[in-house]
Design a protein around this nucleic acid. Sequence first.
DNA 1: TCAAAAGTGTTGACTTTACACCCATGA
DNA 2: TCATGGGTGTAAAGTCAACACTTTTGA
Lengths: 242, 242
Amino acid sequence: MTADISKKLKTAEVEKISHIDYFKIAISVDCVIFGFENKELRVLLIKSDLEEFAGKWSLLGDLVKVDEDLDSAPYRVLRQRTGLDDVFLQQVGSFGAINRHPSGRVITTAYYSLINIRNHKLEITDNEVHWHSLKNLKDLAFDHKQIIESCLQRLRIQIMDEPVIFNLLPEKFSLRELQDLYQAILGIKLDRRNFRKKIALKNWLDDLDEMEDDVPHRPGKLYKLKTGLKKNKLIEAAEKVK
Amino acid sequence: MTADISKKLKTAEVEKISHIDYFKIAISVDCVIFGFENKELRVLLIKSDLEEFAGKWSLLGDLVKVDEDLDSAPYRVLRQRTGLDDVFLQQVGSFGAINRHPSGRVITTAYYSLINIRNHKLEITDNEVHWHSLKNLKDLAFDHKQIIESCLQRLRIQIMDEPVIFNLLPEKFSLRELQDLYQAILGIKLDRRNFRKKIALKNWLDDLDEMEDDVPHRPGKLYKLKTGLKKNKLIEAAEKVK
DNA sequence: TCAAAAGTGTTGACTTTACACCCATGA
DNA sequence: TCATGGGTGTAAAGTCAACACTTTTGA
């Protein structure tokens, strides 16, 4: 019986050789980096450096290295391209239409990231990087429009019952800012009283006993996310999935 | 200005050459095929044909071909390995730890599939294929245990508001069978009266005015999924996401 | 004193849960 | 006649949506 089985088995080395033709696909990661400014949800895009997509905007991404975890690659991309470290990242899905990339067969895994535009001064090495409003996104390179849509979809679901949205806000924020942000992401207006009730119920926030001081109207109370709730590592998110 | 940009741009051909080292990662798909039998949720596994995993069970999967859409690959795998066509499939996520595969660097994209064990007589070309109960899954090859967990997680969410569960049942079924199935997937007992109310509310079912005839107790009414509701193509699922 | 937003409760509609009895069938 | 599940309604608790007035601040 054992002999029987082992006759059919092949070593990994043999398998690799027999499949060597398959090692002709590259895999990339693309980051959909959301930010919030001026009551609008934004996404960070870069001018494509491919001739085929001259003038078009694209997501920040890169090929995955042979000795690099898939889920580590988007962290590297963010670090290298924007200087950001320790950000919230979550895998959304993989996109692999045959002709999605003009350089050859490249399958990409998309991640979404939430960052605070003000806090993180981007060390942008390339000046052709820009925060785009999510309205009027057109003429994107590759299938990046579709990827952004999927990530937005995922974001909308996730903010409803996980405390991820706070990655988009400064440490201290008012309930108005939080509500504006929910509205920007969901694309709908929310009732103020009901919104405050719902947030209070979730028990995500600590009241700081401080007030806004830079607004041209009655200042609101400032809050911060309760410590221990911030899930800003993909690894922690993965734990939750288990 | 135009000249300025084009100086920095590279053609896809040039890019491909400069990145040729990256085309050393293979990508595979793995299918988590769920079935329902004996009031239990099952998953279809195959004995690994790799020496490194001798005796261990693994998911049905294969490397993605260079000229094959990523999302088409799991359909091919199912067709080749089980003779199944036109099944429900949905992408769940990609797994890419560096050493997850002993043959080399292989990143895999996981899909979950729902099929009716009885209806589809599997044309199994290999007799080392088996329907496993989800309890006592151990000693799986690769990271397949973790992949199954992720897919189960997704399944649990999806059955709550999309009519996908019916892919696991025969054309005609009773409400008891449906409830047993929900219970098996969710791992909890449900109240019969409340369950029936909730299902009625969803308006997914047509009453067939027929009765069970093979049960050792009072027979229940038979129902079928309303026509037009069955989402059994990944493409249609993707439409919904948009 | 005006404009802008802060802060705050109640009601009605709806949803969810818990729970028990009689009925039809086959063995 | 027994065992098994089929089939059904109601009441209490909880959640959700709609809605308006007074207060505080800066300009």
